[in-house]
Simulated assay, not measured.
Amino acid sequence: MNTLEINASGNFESWSPGKIKELKDQRISNDLGQNLIFENENIRLWEVILLPNERLPFRKINMDYSWVSLTSGLAISRYADGKIILMRIDKGDSAFLKCKEKTYIYDLENKGNDILFFHLTEFKHQTIKKYLSKGVRLKANKSSND
């Protein structure tokens, strides 16, 4: 995935009044995705499908999660501090995001011509703490080129 910051933190001049109002009114979901497709005591598995120009409204993220893109496309994400990033996403792109006991608020909007499709795995805090307390070390998968 390639990202480009197109609006700096603290600058809301390019924001539409509707997006600013959405943040001020605190109409913010705690759901990581659109559809919860699995949940147990350790994780929640979410699905996000965005048609061209469709937007996932602001989300309040406070748990670690990973995501994988099942399609390629172009998206923007607006953060509650004013920052906006443009993302070129390739099929198979993935990342792990650690919240470090903080809360992040941002949206996601499909700015491309194709459907964006993601799976996200949200790790409940007790899951991460349980593994860390046992001294479990997580290792990255090695590619076939290693």
Rank of each mutant, 00 (worst) to 15 (best):
N2L: 11
N2F: 12
E5L: 09
E5F: 01
N7W: 02
A8V: 01
S9Y: 01
S9P: 13
E13R: 11
S16F: 05
G18N: 15
I20T: 11
E22S: 14
E22C: 08
L23Y: 06
L23C: 07
Q26N: 13
S29C: 03
S29M: 07
D31A: 07
N35G: 01
L36N: 00
N42Y: 12
I43P: 10
L45R: 11
W46L: 08
V48S: 12
L51D: 08
L51A: 14
N53M: 14
E54G: 08
L56F: 02
F58V: 03
K60L: 09
I61M: 10
I61T: 03
W67D: 02
L70G: 09
T71M: 11
G73C: 08
G73A: 10
L74A: 00
A80M: 02
K83Y: 02
I84P: 13
I84Y: 07
I85H: 08
L86S: 12
L86F: 12
L86T: 01
I89E: 06
D90E: 15
K91G: 06
F96S: 07
F96Q: 07
L97S: 13
C99A: 12
C99G: 10
E101H: 12
K102R: 12
K102E: 06
T103Y: 11
I105F: 07
I105A: 09
Y106H: 14
Y106G: 05
D107Q: 07
L108G: 09
L108Q: 04
E109T: 00
N110R: 03
D114C: 00
I115K: 13
F118E: 08
T121P: 07
E122C: 06
H125R: 12
H125A: 15
Q126T: 04
I128L: 15
K129A: 14
K129Q: 13
K130Y: 15
L132H: 13
S133H: 14
S133M: 10
K134S: 14
G135H: 05
A140K: 12
N141M: 13
N141T: 01
N141A: 11
S144R: 05
S144Q: 03
